[in-house]
Structure formats: C-alpha cells, structure tokens
Design a protein around this nucleic acid. Structure first.
Length: 111
DNA sequence: ATTCTGACGTGGG
DNA sequence: CCCCACGCCAGAA
C-alpha cells in the first residue's frame, strides 16, 4: 500500500522542499536539521535525487551551505537550475547565489 | 556481506 | 574564504 503519510525520510524532505516560498532558497543542512538529522544532510540531497517523482518539489531552490548550486549538474542542460533561480529574482554568478543570506529560508525559523 | 560513491556539514589548521 | 579529515546514511556494483 502506498502510504500517503510521511514516515520515510524522503517524504519528509519533499514536504519541506515543497514549502519553500517563491524567490527563496535553503540549504540541505537546514532541511536535515529541521528533520532532526543535521548530520545526514547528504541524505537530503539524495532524497532530492529521488524527487524526480515529486513534481511539487523544487530542488532548484535547495543549495549547499554556501549557496553554491552544487546540484545543477543533475538538472537538464547546464544552466537550467540557474535559469530557474534567476527567474525568481535570485542573482546567480558562477553557480553561486549572490546575497545568499538575503534569500535564505530557514524551515526551523520560518516554518 | 563488502566497498565505494554521493545534490553535505562541521571542526581544526 | 581555503585545505584536510571525519561522520552520516542510502543505494549501486
């Protein structure tokens, strides 16, 4: 049976990621920390990899701790992720988000 | 079962 | 910020 409830780590990540507001960004560690597993930030990224099945999840709004588009290689093309972010009014230079702190969205604080 | 890698983070230097 | 090392958990070979 497909459990619609979130008992798995992945689905928790999906829900948080899907709640990221427009024009905002967050880090894998922030999500992981919100889930109670700050040391498993890698798994957040891994969950994002599986987010291909979840259209509600905007993985392009999730970057590493320094605002670097570490996952841009996983998107189609070479600059799709950057295009999406710039489309939301976020400055991206050299695969790195400018004014990262200003665009940062902390689930623990905002959610 | 073992080994390696990976969309990361933190701490020490 | 850089560099180096360790921890973390899940999945693939």
């Amino acid at each position: 049976m497909a459990k619609t409830n979130d008992t798995g780590f992945f689905e928790k990540v999906y829900q948080v990621a899907s709640q990221i507001p427009y024009g905002r960004v967050t880090s894998y560690g922030a999500i992981a920390k919100y889930l109670g597993t700050p040391k498993s930030a890698r798994m957040v990224g891994w969950a994002m990899n599986a987010s291909h099945n979840n259209p509600d999840v905007s993985a392009h709004r999730v970057v590493n701790r320094i605002g670097l588009l570490s996952g841009k290689h996983h998107f189609e093309g070479t600059n799709l992720m950057q295009q999406l972010l710039e489309n939301e009014g976020i400055e991206v230079v050299e695969n790195q988000i400018q004014n990262f702190e200003k665009h940062f969205w902390d689930p623990q604080k905002e959610l």
